[in-house]
Computed example of a mutant assay.
Amino acid sequence: MTEPRYPRPIGEVPDQTRRLADRAVFTHAYALIPRGVMRDIVTSQLPHWRDSRAWILARPLSGFAETFSQLMVEIQPGGGSDRPEPDPQGEGAYFVMHGQVAIELPDRTEHLEPGGFAWMAPGERYRISNPGETPACVQWIRKAYEPVPDIDVPASYALDAHRVEPVAMDNADGLWRTTRLIDPEDMGHDMHINIVTFEPGGRIPFAETHVMEHGLYVLEGSGVYYLNGEWVEVEAGDFMWLRAFCPQACYASGQGPFRYLLYKDVNRHPALRLS
């Protein structure tokens, strides 16, 4: 199978002739971080990660994300971490965009290529590395796991997203499909990661307004998103954060599929107090 061409940050700083304005938007209800502003000078080193750097796209912050953090991590050949997750309650989801990634668990090693996905349970002991000869790039979504009495924490696992059968959404004539990378019926999981695909002409036909917070990374194509009363154009390589209850809808605007990686928090009682 031909390796997918998922978008990565551009990296290098533009020259002095480039215009300053871009499509970046930050509001109380949503944020758009376009691929064009993910440059070298906004990367961060991570403790206990070697030969790696990260674009931090979302993190818990007053007036911003509340339930999760999302990073784009570039790992050089031979790089990685023996202690990737610093929070003992942190669960993590990795989606490989480019290159090769090995995740070493106590009983096995998972080898992932573009489209590979892995969910790491809270407290899991694992190592992550790039065994290839070119840089690897992954989306890393982290969340503080919310345990529930008498419900088991799921075991860590890995899969190939290309082998997961997409679910056709109702009343969409196959134009709107969802590839579910975490089992939505497993109450042990408190987050879902999906790949959402719209064929040309496909759309979300109503303004969703719900409690789930979202992180969206556009994998392919282009679309137009309705966000809290505004229309925003997005394309491959862009990231969006959507606050809980932000009205949202979209449609595919290009000649090919419009696809994005989607995070949302699910399956838990709403807290009755602000922490």
Rank of each mutant, 00 (worst) to 15 (best):
V96E: 00
V96G: 00
M97Q: 10
H98M: 12
H98E: 15
G99I: 09
Q100N: 11
V101S: 06
V101R: 06
V101N: 08
V101L: 13
V101H: 08
A102D: 15
A102H: 12
I103M: 10
I103D: 03
E104Y: 00
E104R: 13
E104T: 15
E104W: 02
E104G: 03
L105Q: 10
L105H: 12
P106S: 09
P106V: 11
D107H: 11
D107R: 11
D107T: 10
D107E: 14
R108P: 07
R108C: 14
T109S: 13
T109R: 12
E110L: 15
E110P: 04
E110R: 09
E110K: 00
L112S: 03
L112E: 03
E113Y: 10
P114Q: 12
P114K: 11
P114A: 10
P114G: 12
G115N: 08
G115E: 06
G116W: 09
G116A: 09
F117G: 05
A118N: 02
A118G: 08
W119P: 07
W119T: 04
W119N: 01
A121V: 09
P122A: 07
P122T: 01
G123Q: 13
E124I: 06
E124L: 09
E124K: 04
R125V: 13
Y126W: 09
Y126E: 03
R127G: 11
R127L: 06
I128Y: 02
I128K: 01
I128H: 01
I128W: 05
I128V: 14
I128S: 01
S129R: 13
S129C: 06
N130D: 07
N130M: 07
P131Q: 00
G132N: 04
G132C: 06
G132V: 06
E133C: 10
E133A: 13
E133N: 13
T134M: 15
T134K: 14
A136H: 06
C137V: 13
C137D: 04
C137M: 14
C137H: 14
V138R: 04
V138K: 05
V138M: 02
V138Q: 03
Q139L: 13
I141H: 01
I141C: 08
I141S: 09
R142V: 07
R142C: 08
R142F: 03
R142Y: 02
R142A: 09
K143Q: 12
K143I: 00
A144C: 04
A144E: 08
A144W: 04
Y145K: 02
E146V: 11
E146R: 13
P147K: 10
P147D: 10
V148W: 05
V148G: 03
V148S: 08
V148N: 01
P149L: 09
P149S: 07
D150R: 12
D150Y: 14
I151H: 00
I151G: 00
D152R: 12
D152N: 11
V153F: 05
V153C: 14
P154G: 07
P154E: 05
A155Q: 15
A155K: 14
S156Q: 08
Y157S: 10
Y157Q: 04
A158G: 13
A158W: 07
A158V: 02
L159Y: 03
L159A: 14
L159I: 06
L159D: 06
D160K: 05
D160F: 04
A161E: 12
A161D: 12
H162K: 13
H162F: 15
H162P: 02
R163L: 15
R163Q: 15
R163T: 14
R163C: 13
R163G: 15
R163A: 15
R163W: 12
